[in-house]
Design a binder for these strands. Structure first.
Lengths: 195, 195
DNA sequence: GACTAGTTGTAGCACCTGCTACAGAATGGA
DNA sequence: TCCATTCTGTAGCAGGTGCTACAACTAGTC
């Protein structure tokens, strides 16, 4: 091994993730990235095939850190219903956190032409969203069998509704955000669904 | 009047709108616009101060045509509840229409940093969204007074929930769209709210 | 100490971005 | 017919884009 990397890959990736998170894929130029990551073009292209691939790595990193915590909040809760409420709470906490780079989740922010038009990125986003949906569906089904959840509730129908609403929240927050209002609206939404 | 415009302003604006609608603000270059509109840079900058202002004009044009029909569907319906269902139907019809340039409403697609960071654009989007919300709230309040709508339903809480869900739909459609599934989900969502 | 394999900084490529300057063309009124 | 006024096409600017070529550097191996 003739020469070691002069920068820490993990921290540079974390910085890149925050940059993409803040301004989106197209809104973050390569120069912005390099400056934020603290490396030069050579180092960048030695570790990332292209800007697109770097973005994909950032998406993965984001899922393994930020979204992982959200998923945990869901799974730790004693019931699916409480888990979903916990999940929404993490979203509001994120919106409130002054440390958060942006009012859109990086994954939710990837639901745009510019990202979805790239097959590799699209595939990953689709994959991740189905993964989340399937996990929620499984959890709710288990609750139903255990008798904790109303029998008439169809997880295959309710879960997509929840995810859709979640996406809506990330968009609305960009325009109007006020915690108490959002809390009230989420409550109306979830109790309506019977959760 | 020394010389008349050689192109029709309205049709050129309509074409521009469809281009922005298809690929978003940043995704549509000035060259794309000119080509699609069938005019040269001189003509463009004689009628539009800048690309940003042209986008604003397109947003207005979109609201006066596409969104106007949606609003009409809402107001024509005998009750607010039916109006909201009619509104959702127009959205699904739009998603199904092969003539539709994109699976995101131009207004919903404007809920991005790139657009919202421009003060003039942001102001217009905010204004339009509050306008729609207020109209829906007023309609629901009237229905409540008339005894057509459940008393316990709070329009100021329910309407934002509906709009949030609407935004979510426009995002989810980019990833997974299937009419029958969406119909089922919308029904679960609205009946949950008591509509 | 030479060799080799890897990393780094610099300079620059070809292309695209929104936008402008300017000459030429077309039309009305005097 | 000349003028003024407006429109249009062309050419090009200054700056930004993602990316690459290349020389210099750094380390471990022989």
């Amino acid at each position: 091994m003739p020469r070691a990397l002069e920068f820490d890959y993990e921290t540079s990736l974390d910085r890149a993730t925050r940059l993409f998170w803040k301004s989106g894929y197209a809104g973050t130029s390569l120069r912005d990235l390099l400056k934020g990551m603290g490396i030069g073009e050579s180092s960048f292209y030695n570790t990332h095939k292209s800007k697109k691939h770097a973005y994909l790595e950032c998406l993965k990193h984001y899922n393994e850190t930020v979204n992982r915590k959200r998923a945990e909040a869901f799974f730790i809760a004693p019931t699916a219903a409480l888990g979903i409420r916990a999940l929404f709470k993490t979203v509001l906490d994120c919106l409130d956190d002054p440390n958060t780079p942006s009012l859109v989740c990086l994954m939710a922010g990837s639901l745009t032409h510019e990202v979805l038009d790239e097959p590799e990125l699209r595939q990953y986003v689709e994959e991740r969203m189905t993964l989340l949906a399937d996990a929620m569906i499984a959890r709710m089904s288990a609750d139903k069998q255990a008798g904790v959840l109303e029998e008439k509730l169809d997880p295959h129908l309710v879960v997509p509704v929840i995810i859709t609403y979640l996406q809506g929240i990330w968009r609305m927050a960009l325009v109007f955000y006020e915690r108490s209002r959002f809390e009230g609206q989420i409550d109306v939404f979830l109790t309506g669904l019977g959760l």
